[in-house]
């Protein structure tokens, strides 16, 4: 694993706080998720339930997000990712699958504050009105012109992930959207 460099050592304090998270372990898993034997084998290593389409499920430190009909994103602690990857390779055995450690390829940000929905809505073409996007939903989309995914942890906290190569751009645009004085008060 490489030494990751943080783009934002100090969180940005606007009307929503934007902070870069400590490195977390991320695995990309591709395979036939509609196959029951595949999912059974998967569950030997993954403690959570399988997420439904466009959902994310959590169990302790582990989260599993639905990326596409044949792709999952497994989030875990940074130091446990190698063990989990080995475990997945063992339990999936000779089935057709792909597992890759993408911990260092991506970066995650946490937004916290009462108006996290509003800050995300400024950047992504997603209906974030309360009742339309609930905690537990997982959405891949774009933020400005870069691809990203996000989910709500609670009504006042959200997590955004994107490629590390565009982390600085993401931090800057999230900070701009969260700037004090930029409140729209759309849903308050």
């Amino acid at each position: 694993m490489s030494n990751s460099i943080s783009h934002a050592n100090t969180p940005f304090d606007g009307y929503v706080t934007v902070s870069e998270d400590a490195p977390s372990g991320m695995l990309t898993l591709r395979g036939d998720l509609s196959s029951k034997p595949f999912v059974t084998a998967l569950k030997k290593s993954v403690s959570t339930d399988m997420p439904a389409s466009c959902q994310i499920v959590h169990d302790g430190q582990m989260s599993v997000g639905w990326m596409s009909p044949d792709e999952l994103l497994i989030l875990t602690a940074y130091d446990q990712v190698a063990g989990l990857e080995a475990g997945l390779r063992k339990s999936l055995g000779k089935r057709h699958f792909l597992v890759a450690d993408v911990s260092d390829a991506r970066v995650s940000f946490t937004l916290s504050g009462d108006k996290v929905r509003e800050v995300i809505a400024k950047l992504a073409p997603v209906d974030l009105a309360p009742g339309h996007f609930a905690p537990g939903a997982f959405r891949r989309t774009r933020f400005g012109q870069i691809s990203a995914a996000f989910w709500l942890i609670s009504e006042t906290e959200a997590r955004v992930i994107c490629f590390r190569s565009v982390a600085e751009f993401m931090f800057n645009q999230l900070s701009t959207a969260a700037h004090l004085g930029g409140e729209v008060d759309l849903w308050s």
Partner: peptide
């Protein structure tokens, strides 16, 4: 039709 999301043009 794969993820069921109503995606607008800029996402496609």
């Amino acid at each position: 039709p794969y993820c069921g999301v109503d995606a607008e043009e800029t996402e496609l």
